[in-house]
């Protein structure tokens, strides 16, 4: 079984706070991390390899420093990595991102299964997985929370929906995106960490992938960001004073008055 996992390097939003006065980001030594959802993708791939055998390659598109996340993936136990990096890729929307990732998958000779995280926490789009599946003409199951049956030919997966879940059969080759429930990521192994230290991350750019700079990055994107601004402050805020008894009663009265909740019998 040949598995490719797509992982992204993102800024660690846990340390980002909004300045309440100026509504700008306050960064105190914000580090780059592996997108938290992609750790579940790595875990899912490792579990599948344990059952089915085969090899896992982790790929990432990003600036040169994104090689770090490939090394981390090696530490978790993947077999190989690939950094897809080129100045021409900067500013890519999800359409241009999937173009580059699809080319990287083909460069690696394809896969039986591609695993993506549910979404990246910087853009929060959740679009790259399904977009990549369409680019490669693969069947997909998004938001996978577990599986019931696995083999080299197909997977029977549980797909999270808003009102429960579906059990879906996915023939391979195919693509899945995974959510947290697939399993808590294991810690990196000592052996993996040793290997990561020495691992030379292979890298490819637009030219090696046969990509025209006009079809990737900002130039190859359909969407354009026209404005970035701070979210509005919480509107009118009312702090209710008095004793707990008074404040509790008052807030109910206000909500009934504003018809947010029903009063009367």
């Amino acid at each position: 079984m040949k598995i490719i996992v797509c992982i992204k390097q993102v800024p660690d939003t846990a340390n980002v706070r909004l300045d309440p006065e100026t509504h700008t980001l306050k960064r105190e030594g914000v580090e780059s991390i592996v997108n938290p959802f992609d750790l579940f993708a790595l875990e899912a791939a490792l579990r599948l390899r344990e059952e089915l055998g085969g090899a896992i390659t982790a790929i990432t598109m990003g600036p040169p420093q994104a090689a770090e996340v490939i090394k981390e993936a090696i530490g978790y136990g993947v077999d190989d990595g690939l950094l897809v990096s080129d100045r021409a890729f900067a500013g890519a929307d999800t359409w241009a991102t999937t173009r580059a990732l699809a080319a990287a998958v083909e460069h690696l000779g394809g896969a039986d299964l591609i695993v993506c995280g549910k979404q990246a926490v910087d853009g929060d789009t959740a679009q790259v997985g399904p977009g990549l599946a369409q680019r490669l003409d693969l069947p997909q199951v998004a938001f996978v929370k577990g599986w019931r049956e696995i083999s080299d030919g197909h997977l029977v997966l549980e797909r999270q929906m808003d009102d429960g879940f579906d059990v879906v059969r996915l023939p391979l080759p195919g693509l899945i995106t995974v959510v947290r429930e697939v399993g808590e990521p294991r810690p990196p192994s000592l052996k993996g960490k040793m290997r990561a230290k020495k691992y030379q991350v292979p890298a490819v750019g637009a030219a090696e992938l046969g990509l025209d700079p006009a079809e990737v990055g900002l130039a190859g994107s359909h969407t354009e960001v026209v404005k970035v601004f701070a979210p509005q402050a919480g509107g009118d805020r009312l702090m209710l004073g008095g004793t707990a008894e008074e404040a509790g009663a008052r807030v109910i009265d206000l909500l009934v008055e504003a018809k947010v909740i029903a009063g009367g019998a």
């Binding site: 309440p20 209710l240 807030v251 109910i252 029903a262």
Partner: peptide, 28 residues
């Protein structure tokens, strides 16, 4: 409290029972 429309600084174990009591009163 930065995103709240109605903020109460207090112990939830006192405030919530007061909310429940008032709800019962208003609904009869």
């Amino acid at each position: 409290f930065e995103v709240a429309t109605h903020g109460i600084v207090g112990d939830l174990f006192e405030v919530v029972p007061a909310m429940l009591k008032r709800l019962e009163q208003t609904r009869g």
